[in-house]
Write a protein that binds this DNA or RNA. Structure first.
Lengths: 121, 121
DNA sequence: CTCTATGCAAAAACTTTGCAGGGAT
DNA sequence: ATCCCTGCAAAGTTTTTGCATAGAG
């Protein structure tokens, strides 16, 4: 997926900050919090959050909150659930989860619990 | 369900604060945030949160975060999902949602999206 | 009487906002 | 040239912590 097109298609100005954010998320290929992504960024946190808002509003990004009170961001792809382990805090994308609920439009699903690795111990 | 027993069974001291919290949650019969429940309470917020932690740790309560960055609390009953409408911010308990995921232990599921009422408009 | 719970105030953690200057088209 | 974007600093929001006093068992 071409990041520059993603930005320009929404009539947003193509800036270094915006490219950096989307490139970092694309490279990571998993949901990241501001803290996670910060080392890859050269912009101020205000700019980061302002762009995140804009991207979400334009439907480029999805976000959800893990139970650590942080928001996690990822480039919007196929709808899928996220599993957050309350023990090891790992976040995992779950593609096999049913995303259908009659009468509702589902945006994101966050499942909290304990992952297989933690259940073993 | 008897609130005093719920507290004493966990070897917690039976205090006014603890009874108030559980009674308010039981009466509401839906998840509440601190802000929601505050008018029913006579204690300080520190006491509220300290007791919430204790209750969660003892398995009396469940909590989850809606996308408004607040935590919502409810007395632990049958496992069920919560739907959070990103448009009207209403929170709804969804009993019909499948809570099974092979290999994982599921604690809570939060579904974000738009509810039927908001989809009509 | 002992140990836990509580209130108050201050801190912590994450995110948002105001404002003046800088950059994309 | 025009508007949108950015950095900095300050404020906002929700939750947590330290400490001295009060209360349950």
């Amino acid at each position: 997926m071409n990041i520059e097109k993603l930005i320009k298609n929404k009539n947003l100005k193509l800036t270094t900050a915006r490219k950096e954010i989307l490139e970092a998320l694309q490279t990571a290929n998993k949901p990241l919090s501001y803290e996670d992504i910060k080392p890859e960024l050269s912009m101020d946190k205000a700019t980061f959050y302002r762009n995140i808002s804009k991207f979400e509003h334009e439907g480029i990004l999805d976000s959800f909150e893990a139970n650590d009170k942080k928001r996690y961001f990822e480039i919007k792809l196929k709808p899928h659930a996220h599993f957050v382990c309350i023990q090891c805090n790992q976040i995992e994308c779950i593609k096999s989860f049913d995303m259908y609920l009659e009468g509702y439009e589902i945006n994101t699903i966050t499942i909290n619990g304990r992952c297989p690795q933690c259940l073993e111990n």
